[in-house]
Design a protein around this nucleic acid. Structure first.
Length: 439
DNA sequence: TCTGGGGTCCTAGGACCC
DNA sequence: TCTGGGGTCCTAGGACCC
């Protein structure tokens, strides 16, 4: 079983810990420059204020209802988050911190008879220790735990909800929208609907293969996850693979010096983040945008990257490189709204770059010329298993058939076979664990 | 007037190597 | 009838998530 712990209205809850006056009042927390609403208390949600809405569109509603507004304080939220996470680890050591306010729990080792009571205890003590209210969903897969968490928030008096494979689950899957499932957004929901799949229940009952063709392997996994077959494992993500620091300006500028000042700050902050996770970066990218909402200004957005000769975590080098990239990007005739820096190709300091790290990426396994006119799945699997290296994290299978090559027109060129330009080799990439489950 | 910031993964191919 | 096999690195866009 998996658990999903989600802090309720996290940023608002953090503010309330230090200001009890805010309890039972409508409160929202705003983004950088107080532009958007990025967290809402239940009272604010009840007023119909949506997530991510521009503040100016709701000014009237906010004033009328005396909604309290707060600028965001990410240092505070980050600190509160680590308090919640370390409290969680005290009860369940095997957790995946999924975001600032969410964590998945591996509940395998917890006695299933007492599981729900334990979840209620965890919830109570987290609140006592940190002041943050959480909801906990429990299910046989991460996707179902996510759904259970949603139910906990809506329909549970004690903040805990258990969702095993059952008729009850099927009923829920029939009642909710596709977009309520983790991993399915509007775009994919529309694609599914065009195929006649309108509810998560219908998705669960679909042929996984068809869904893969429609959406990709990501969609196929969701089908299995909805059936209670885990395809997503708990992942302990230790280090970030990319680090971005960017901000919008309060007002637009076309002064290169303003841009350089901002960029220097962001690059320094990114380098700090990099060092704090003991990593080095191998590439740097800078991007720049005009105001995408403005109808009267000319639009320009561009980015430029450089691969470094040596890995680095030096603030000085990163700022220098970022400045050089800005020189490529800057055009004096635009007004700029946003600039940012991204550190890429991140490696752990002191890591052996020649070993597993390289094995995990790229085409790991190519098998051909061993199969003779078969489409039998077990033949293919057996042939592959023959040579598989257990260290692999991923594998790719492609298959070809007669007709890939264009035959030479005359005898003179008899060895000059050409690849057909319109030929696309079907292939499928998957995680090693998925293969084991299938085979 | 005003519209966030920070991530991950997958696909589909091209260029190039021996 | 039956065409070479195997591999790395990179790009760029498009999804999705909180």
């Amino acid at each position: 079983m998996y658990g999903l712990v989600d802090c309720n209205n996290f940023y608002v809850s953090c503010e309330r810990v230090f200001n009890p006056f805010l309890r039972n009042k409508p409160v929202v927390v705003l983004s950088n420059n107080d532009g958007c609403i990025i967290a809402r208390s239940n009272e604010a949600k009840a007023l119909g204020i949506p997530m991510g809405a521009p503040l100016h569109q709701y000014k009237k509603l906010i004033n009328q209802n005396k909604v309290l507004t707060y600028s965001s304080n990410y240092t505070l939220y980050g600190d509160m988050s680590s308090r919640v996470m370390s409290s969680l680890k005290y009860f369940v050591p095997d957790i995946e911190i999924y975001s600032i306010d969410e964590a998945f729990l591996n509940l395998e080792k917890i006695n299933s008879l007492t599981l729900l009571d334990e979840m209620i205890t965890i919830r109570t003590l987290i609140y006592q220790w940190t002041g943050i209210p959480v909801s906990i969903g429990v299910g046989p897969t991460k996707t179902l735990a996510k759904l259970a968490n949603r139910m906990a928030k809506k329909h549970s008096s004690n903040g805990v909800y258990f969702l095993p494979i059952s008729n009850h689950l099927n009923k829920i899957l029939k009642d909710i929208c596709l977009e309520d499932i983790w991993g399915i957004s509007k775009g994919w929901a529309n694609r599914l609907k065009s195929l006649g799949i309108h509810t998560p229940f219908e998705l669960q009952q679909s042929d996984p293969r068809k869904i893969r063709d429609l959406i990709s392997v990501v969609g196929e996994r969701i089908v299995y996850e909805l059936r209670g077959i885990p395809c997503l494992n708990l992942e302990v993500i230790a280090a970030k693979k990319s680090i971005t620091v960017s901000r919008s300006f309060g007002s637009m500028t076309n002064d290169k010096n303003d841009l350089k000042k901002a960029l220097a700050n962001y690059a320094a902050r990114a380098a700090e983040k990099l060092r704090s996770q003991s990593s080095l970066c191998g590439a740097i990218s800078v991007f720049i945008n005009t105001n995408r909402f403005s109808k009267k200004d000319l639009q320009y957005s561009n980015s430029s990257s450089v691969i470094l000769d040596d890995l680095t975590d030096s603030t000085q080098i990163i700022i220098q490189k970022a400045f050089r990239l800005l020189e490529n990007l800057y055009r004096p005739n635009y007004n700029y709204k946003k600039i940012g820096v991204i550190l890429l190709n991140i490696e752990k300091r002191g890591q052996d770059l020649t070993s597993e790290n390289y094995v995990i990426q790229g085409n790991l396994f190519t098998y051909s010329n061993i199969l003779h006119k078969t489409n039998n799945q077990s033949d293919i699997c057996m042939k592959m298993l023959d040579g598989i290296n257990a260290k692999m994290g991923k594998m790719t299978l492609f298959y070809g058939s007669q007709g890939i090559m264009k035959q030479p027109k005359n005898k003179k060129e008899k060895n000059n076979w050409q690849m057909r330009s319109n030929y696309r080799s079907p292939f499928y990439t998957t995680n090693w664990n998925d293969i084991l489950k299938v085979s």
